[in-house]
């Protein structure tokens, strides 16, 4: 009899941890992105068809502990195939389309960010790579099962029918879609993170820092203070 792995955290927490990937904490004033603990991959349940492919570890060059921070470079080669990049680009458009606030993730180069990420020789990224490459394969398997073709060749409506089954936290409770939902949550985090860290995304989200203010820090604007005072007035008793 095989022992089943029982995680200390429930699956809702598990998705949150997976999705949040990094949690911002402050250590001695240094904002630190803390690695989430290793993500337990649940067993594959009946009715699910998660590919569960394994991959050789990436051993490409790292940037080391003394990189040129003023002129950053990324030394490892990219590993996604053109076919995989095509699906990633399609998913970037689905997850983060152009809207009133800004362009699509694809328009700002996020597929390359994903390629850089899953090709990186670091532990967390390699673990993400396993989840993401399996997820891309799952999409093709599911597309073939439902519609008899590769995901990239499906109509938008067909693609979204599949995505609707794996895009929401609640789908973790559906055995058939559990792994695919974990995959999608990870990819969504990376795609939206990649978008909002791009120059266009930073503008979109309204980040106004990283610009010198000579003299004393001016503090909140009148508008920001008015908004705060309204919150304080209505704080719970």
């Amino acid at each position: 009899m095989s022992k089943k792995y029982t995680s200390r955290i429930n699956r809702r927490d598990s998705l949150k941890w997976l999705g949040s990937m990094t949690s911002v904490v402050v250590i001695g004033g240094v904002v630190v992105a803390c690695d989430a603990p290793d993500q337990p991959i649940p067993e594959i349940k009946e009715g699910s068809h998660w590919p569960d492919l394994t991959f050789d570890p990436i051993t490409g060059p790292k940037y080391g502990q003394d990189p040129d921070m003023l002129n950053p470079t990324t030394p490892w080669p990219r590993t996604l195939t053109n076919e995989q990049l095509d699906i990633v680009a399609r998913l970037c458009d689905i997850i983060c389309p152009e809207d009133e606030g800004g362009p699509s993730a694809t328009a700002v180069g996020v597929p390359e960010v994903i390629d850089e990420w899953v090709s990186a020789p670091y532990k967390d990224q390699q673990s993400d790579r396993v989840l993401i490459l399996n997820g891309l394969q799952w999409l093709d398997d599911e597309a073939s099962r439902r519609f008899g073709g590769l995901f990239i060749n499906l109509s938008e409506a067909e693609q979204l029918e599949i995505i609707d089954d794996i895009a929401y936290e609640k789908q973790l409770d559906v055995a058939e879609f559990e792994h695919a939902t974990m995959f999608f949550a990870k990819l969504r985090t990376l795609v939206l993170g990649g978008y909002f860290t791009s120059p266009e995304g930073m503008r979109d989200i309204g980040y106004m820092g990283n610009t010198p203010i000579m003299g004393d820090y001016p503090g909140p604007t009148a508008e920001a203070m008015a908004h705060l005072n309204d919150i304080i007035t209505n704080l719970p008793a």
């Binding site: 969504r188 985090t189 993170g193 978008y195 909002f196």
Partner: peptide, 15 residues
Amino acid sequence: FGAPDMGLGGSADGY
């Protein structure tokens, strides 16, 4: 409002 980082994407659901 810190400099946007990859963790931001974790606060969404759906697409």
